[in-house]
Every structure is written in structure tokens, then in C-alpha cells.
Design a protein around this nucleic acid. Structure first.
Lengths: 270, 270
DNA sequence: CAAATAGTGTCTCTAAGACAATATCAC
DNA sequence: GTGATATTGTCTTAGAGACACTATTTG
């Protein structure tokens, strides 16, 4: 009983209670509405993926895709596996936005969740999500601070409208946290996860990070600008956007065509 | 068997294997060396807390403070509890730097860890750590990129010198990851945790975040500048530092005295 | 030509970095 | 006065934001 081998052989993790661990993923994409005129550019909407729950708790309500961490995989692999199961698409990017471990957050028991942001580009068409018969749907996102200092999170899909109310919690440093005042029929604490994910993504999008992931490999600068504006819910002058982005992209010798106006050069990420 | 109550009562989380979950904390502080001349300002060192392991695995090697998540607490509460147990100090700030869940990272079994950065200010003297008889010691930190593209992490306490070699792993976005080439006798994957923690803290310190936590409530601007320089391992011009920090601090009407040179005004964080 | 987007030039203002100069204490 | 740090001023340059202007395609 003195060697490391003996010690580890007799070490029993079952002596301690253990939580179940899940990965929940906020999968974003950008969807375009049909333009009124053939010349006009389409209007973009930031959307996220929700799954209709088929079981208790929160049966028939909408929740983030996610699932339990399995032995032999990392939490990132778990997140990617769950996204693929729901969308049949493997996203190229994944960002952790922290752990949610508040006791009582899941009525089924002691379950803690690592939350992620992931982005599916407009070129990666997903069969499984979006079919009107399916239980996986894209919801248009709106997230705004109202005059009472409350954050309103609105998720909309056709006539389904989920509207959660959250309050920002000041923490010493680290990730911004949100407290749910009204979950708006979004399951579990997922409204708070979505709020944090949006905040984290918008922070990144300021420095032009993550915005490339919404687009195919080749894109026009206007498309890229539209992504940033849609994600951050702002509007910038194209001359300034082009100047600032110029160091992060490289030209190709291809152009768009047949758009009813001057063709645009296609760029790639540098 | 149709109601939510029945469903939850018969729901058994034990059907799935579960990992043990720990919080590991990189606790930083700044320690001052004695100046050569009574007039000179002391030289500052960035230090972090390591615990000498009394048991296998990695017996007699140095590891980060940390421990298992217990039922009824959040992962943040767990981290704070572990810091308090080791230092008898409750830090005012805590930042998550992500999950470490690589299978095989812990020889004892399936154990995943949420890593944190925490800061103890120079005014919060800790009895338990630092006593030469104790198993908890402050190690001076050096973390640099060498000419071969490898990151060298050096931790020093008196004649103990731990030197790990790491490689940066490019990930699509999110936190920077490091791969351990040589753990330098630092237990588990803690060298990679420390590397990520340092990177995250330095990124924050750029915008003057977290640097206040190293100091007491009232401080001189030179002290604050020294903290930023020590944490980031850079050197800036004081005139420019003062201009940039001016919006984040407020004056008090107190001054330092008896320092052998012009007194400095004390400031508070705004 | 009209509609619509693509792309360039330039003015102003702010902020960052470099550096010079002055202020004030303890001995 | 000397040594050391504290504090202010200002020059130059880089970058952001605003805005005006030109270019190019399709119906």
C-alpha cells in the first residue's frame, strides 16, 4: 500500500457525489428575408437554434440544443457532437461562455452546464433544422436594454414569440451574468445562457472576430459589414468599415454578377 | 406516469456515468523585493500560489489549489471556498478561464476542471501561505515566448525552480489553448491552466481591468502603473499611463509621506 | 437613363506614444 | 543641494467617424 500504483488502484471517486455535466450550445446563423425589389439587398436577421422539448421537465417548451458529457470526450467534442446531431452540420468554430452551476437550475437533479457559442455559416445549409414539421427551429433574435434597465430577449419563429426579461448582475470581473426575471417560456436557465452568449459574441464582433464564420469562404465586403451590423445591432459607414477591415482580408480576382448593380469584388479572410 | 411529477420522480441520473468536477484556481498576487536604497521603489514580482501535494498522484510535486465541487454550491463558490481554505483570505474577484476536460488529464479517473483566476491584494496578508514550513508557497512567475515559438513558464520559490514548456494551439476562436511539451514537474495539466490564466489576465490588464485588485483601496498612480507593468511584463511612460487611467480613478485628499522624495496623491478606483 | 450598390478621397477630431520640463519631498 | 519620484505640458502621428464624390452594372 505504499506505491503510487496501489494508491490509485484503491482510489475510489465514488466516495464523492458527482454532478451530471452537460454542454448547451447557442448556435447562431444569419438568415435573409426576401427583398422587395430585385435590385435591393436582402434584410438579414440574426437567428439561433432552439429545440422543442418532447419530455418533462419543460415539456413542449423550447430549449437550447445540448446533452450530457460522455466518458472519453472533451466538453468541446460533446458540444460539437450535439450540434451535429441536431443540424447534421459540423460548425468550424466554438467558444465557451462559461459554466452554469446554480443549484436547482435543473429540476431533474444536480446538473451543471458548460455553455458555448457556435456559428453556422449561411453556406452550410442544414436539413434537419427549419423544416416546419421538425422540433428544431431557427428563431430570430432581438436583445435590447429597455428604459427600466431590464434586458428584453425576444425570440421569434413565425407566430411563436418567446420574450424573456433579464437583469444584469455586476460581478467583480469575468463574464457578465444575467438573472432571469421572466423566462418567457424558454426552458431551464437558457434565457440567461443566451443573454451571456449574445453579449460575449457582440464583444468579439467589435474587433471583427467571429463575423467571418457567418459567411462562406468568399464574400463581399458589404456582406461582411452586414454581418457585423446584424450581429451587433448597429450601423456603420461603409467607407470606415472598409478601411478598418482591409488588414484582415485579402482580395480574390472574382466578382459578383447579375445583381442589378455594380459587381463587387470577392474577398477571403487573411 | 403521465404527470411531470411522476416523470421527475422516476428520472434517474444514475443511469448515466458522471465525471467528478473540480475547480482549480490560479491565485495571483504581487510581492515586493527589498529596495537597495531607502529612496528607491521596491521591485515587484508577479507570484502565484502552489500547493505541495501530500498524496499520489504527483506526490511531493506542486499543484494549483483546488478541490471537488460539492452539492448545493456553484462552481464559483467552490473556487472561493478552496482559496479560503488555503490562504484564509476571501478574494474579492474571480474570473473563469474555461474548462479542462481532456480524457486522461487526471490519473485518478474521470475528473474535469473549471479553471479560475483570482487575485489577492498586497494588503490582504495571508498567514497560511508563505510560511516556509507550509505546503503552500508563492512562486514568482515568468512566462515568455522563446525563439523556437515555445512558451517557457518558469515558477520560482527560493531554490525551487519549476520550468514548463508549452506550445500554443490555434483554435478557431475563444480562449487560447496551450499544449504541454514538458510539464516541468508541475502536477497534472496545471502548467497549461497557468498559461491560459496568464494570457487571459494579461489581455484584461491591457484595458486596466483586474489591476486594481492587486492593490489596497487607496493607492498612488505609480503603484497602479507598476502593477500593470509587472502583470503584463511591459514598460510604459508614466505621463501616458496617467492620461489613460485618469477616467477610471478618483482623487482622495491624502498623500504618501516619508518616502524620501516628493509625496504622491492617493487615488481610489472610480 | 434610373436604381441601386461598389468603392475612393479627404476633413476633422481624438487618442496614443515620445519626450521635455517643472515640482516637491527626505536627507 | 542631491537624489529620487511626482506631475504637467506639448509635439507628432495614427486611427476613427463623417461626408462628399465617383464608378459600374442591369433593366
Amino acid at each position: 500500500m505504499n506505491s503510487e500504483f496501489d494508491y490509485l488502484n484503491n482510489y475510489n471517486l465514488n466516495d464523492y457525489e458527482r454532478p451530471s455535466v452537460t454542454a448547451d450550445i447557442v448556435v447562431f446563423t444569419i438568415r435573409s428575408e426576401e427583398p422587395e425589389s430585385f435590385r435591393k439587398e436582402p434584410k438579414n436577421n440574426l437567428s439561433l437554434l432552439l429545440i422543442k422539448r418532447g419530455q418533462y421537465p419543460y415539456k413542449d417548451q423550447w430549449a437550447l440544443p445540448g446533452g450530457f458529457l460522455a466518458p472519453g470526450e472533451t466538453i468541446e467534442q460533446c458540444a460539437l457532437r450535439e450540434i451535429e446531431e441536431e443540424t447534421s452540420v459540423i460548425p468550424t468554430s466554438l467558444m465557451s461562455v462559461g459554466m452554469f452551476s446554480e443549484p436547482g437550475r435543473d429540476p431533474r437533479g444536480w446538473i451543471i452546464s458548460n455553455a458555448f457559442v457556435s456559428i453556422i455559416s449561411s453556406s452550410q445549409k442544414t436539413q434537419r433544422a427549419g423544416d416546419d414539421a421538425a422540433d428544431a427551429q431557427w428563431f430570430d433574435v432581438s436583445f435590447e436594454l429597455n428604459e427600466n434597465g431590464m434586458y428584453m430577449l425576444t425570440l421569434q419563429h413565425n407566430d411563436i414569440c418567446l420574450r424573456a426579461v433579464l437583469r444584469e448582475e455586476k460581478s467583480r470581473f469575468g463574464m457578465t451574468s444575467f438573472i432571469i426575471e421572466d423566462n418567457g417560456f424558454i426552458a431551464f436557465d437558457h434565457a440567461a445562457i443566451i443573454a451571456r452568449a449574445l453579449t460575449a459574441m457582440r464583444n468579439r464582433a467589435k474587433d471583427f472576430e467571429m463575423i467571418f464564420d457567418f459567411l462562406p469562404e468568399k464574400f463581399t465586403l458589404t456582406e461582411l459589414q452586414n454581418v457585423q451590423e446584424t450581429v451587433m445591432n448597429i450601423s456603420v459607414l461603409s467607407a470606415n468599415f472598409r478601411r478598418k477591415i482591409s488588414g484582415l482580408v485579402k482580395e480574390t480576382d472574382e466578382y459578383t454578377e447579375g445583381a442589378g448593380h455594380r459587381p463587387a469584388k470577392l474577398y477571403q479572410r487573411k
